[in-house]
Write a protein that binds this DNA or RNA. Sequence first.
DNA 1: AATGAATGAGGATTCATTCAT
DNA 2: GATGAATGAATCCTCATTCAT
Lengths: 191, 191, 191, 191
Amino acid sequence: MPRVGMEPIRREALVKATIAEVGRKGSLDVTVAHIAARAGVSSGLAHHYFGGKEDLIVAAMRHIMQIYGTAVRDELRAAASPRARAAGIVRASFGPANFAPEVVAAWLSFYVHAQSATGARRLLGIYQRRLVSNLADALRPLAGERARDLAETLAALIDGLYIRHALGDLPDGAAASARVIGVMDRLLEAA
Amino acid sequence: MPRVGMEPIRREALVKATIAEVGRKGSLDVTVAHIAARAGVSSGLAHHYFGGKEDLIVAAMRHIMQIYGTAVRDELRAAASPRARAAGIVRASFGPANFAPEVVAAWLSFYVHAQSATGARRLLGIYQRRLVSNLADALRPLAGERARDLAETLAALIDGLYIRHALGDLPDGAAASARVIGVMDRLLEAA
Amino acid sequence: MPRVGMEPIRREALVKATIAEVGRKGSLDVTVAHIAARAGVSSGLAHHYFGGKEDLIVAAMRHIMQIYGTAVRDELRAAASPRARAAGIVRASFGPANFAPEVVAAWLSFYVHAQSATGARRLLGIYQRRLVSNLADALRPLAGERARDLAETLAALIDGLYIRHALGDLPDGAAASARVIGVMDRLLEAA
Amino acid sequence: MPRVGMEPIRREALVKATIAEVGRKGSLDVTVAHIAARAGVSSGLAHHYFGGKEDLIVAAMRHIMQIYGTAVRDELRAAASPRARAAGIVRASFGPANFAPEVVAAWLSFYVHAQSATGARRLLGIYQRRLVSNLADALRPLAGERARDLAETLAALIDGLYIRHALGDLPDGAAASARVIGVMDRLLEAA
DNA sequence: AATGAATGAGGATTCATTCAT
DNA sequence: GATGAATGAATCCTCATTCAT
């Protein structure tokens, strides 16, 4: 029963279904048919709106990154000091929206996918550079020219905790945040 | 022309071909036929020896982990102090055998695969726990009961640098080692 | 913005778009969506007016045949002698309206389609019989009872030159006409 | 039940099944599954041996052309005079192997396909040029420098009669041959 | 009159796996 | 010990067609 103005609704439903499906399966070996079914539409519609599976994947990545970007912005807005800004970025990385098991699983799948797909790689590169430069900007007042180096270390640590979370290791986002912030504090003191 | 005693030779060739192929492609979307061709045998033989693709994948993971295990043991044998032992483990992680681009790419693929395949997950769990306990053991004389926590942090940092390397970020293994060891030293001082 | 009296306009636009699209592609593997887009309407409208793709194809064939029929009538009207009448029919076959590359490509596609579609076959049969009887009528004063046979030969020759034109062989319509008329003259003399 | 040395047998069976299927349907809208079923194998095998549908089509064209080429060679070998050579080529074109309804239908489909597929077009170009030059060579002793022109006319006439046969017009190959040879004779006299 | 949302059947293609030799 | 012939399930994608608005 076609109604007008459905496009944005369908697109969003499909993107969310993609993330959910990839997250549940823990890999990109997911069929368009399943995604479409989960979104409550036919597989044909997924192709109609996105052109193909790859585009759907990329759209899902973009969506996940947008969620993360929003979380970062919210944390930054609420932060009063440089340290609070850095800590906020870390907390955003492990916030509920980002650190839900299926989202983490999807993230990890996208990382691997980026190794072979150009579009995905570009997208991920943007995210990674932004994470590092956000962190470096926040740390500059505290660490000066060491800020960049510190930011890179923290970014890597965040990614590493993500991986381990995806494989079922770590307890929760709060613990992960605390660990990264703890390391940050000690590395700042060590200067 | 079949000859006797070929089994171990074929098995190794297939395992190495699997790693090479997965590393080159950057994903497990690799055909048994390609792997077999690279190993110079028929695809039927791969099944004959390994039972199926999944088992071949697991064997390849095991092989990569053995290489890593050997590198760690070599480093530990040569180390004189607790700090040298910890640093050795880190260096083993980023040594040439482990940090070759295709090996890193394969590692990452295996990580994702472990999200959905039980056998792979179990194997990876063993590796991760061993890495952490190796590190913790080495650090105990220096950090006491904080050793475990520190080891977990360093393990996550190592994994994070791996990921970023896989996506083309970091320069080389030496730099990665230096970064981790630097963080380790400062965290030890901070106590 | 729907307006009244649009039907004939839409129909013609769709028919012309069909010919153009089939001609461009060189086959009936053309989507209704493409045709509709070229005609500046939605694909739904094409079905609304024609019922289905097949009917659209048949309408396009009919249109092409009408163009040809008009060209023949014009030539016949201007012809003074029997020979001029026959030559006129030939010239009409290779006139600009019929011998444009895309029209020739469409013709050929329709020929093949007629092998499997009844409606198309019937339509094409009408055209072929008319071509032959037009030619035979024109030639009767010159060739008597041999007229029919001669007409069949010339009709086949015309079709053959069409095919070769469609595949990029022949220079232009004038040369094709000249060739057929030359053959005709010699066959008439040979009596 | 795999046996060794099946490849040539399967290839031929698939090629013949392709011609039969295309001929029966009168178009290239034929599924690989149907072709494979007719050849008594799975659809996967068709891809295994030919790579894809298009390659299968091209192989079928090549096969049809080889049959024709053989028929021409046989006729030429048996011909004593220039005229007999030319007549032989014509007869080969309408011989039983070439003029069977399904073969003619396949030919016509290939003609159309050649409009859009490069490989098919190239192949058909070779056939067409060979037909013309074979004819021209045969006619040279009789028609001198008019041989080429005459050959082109006869080639077009042959193609035209093929089309009309495909659409159910003409009685049989003998009649078609007689018509072409008759035209040839009269055009030769007319010099 | 016209749209475009939506479907779903159908088809090419890939590939792990099996098995006779 | 080794091959490669063969299968068939699985999946992506296309597209004619329908229908509510």
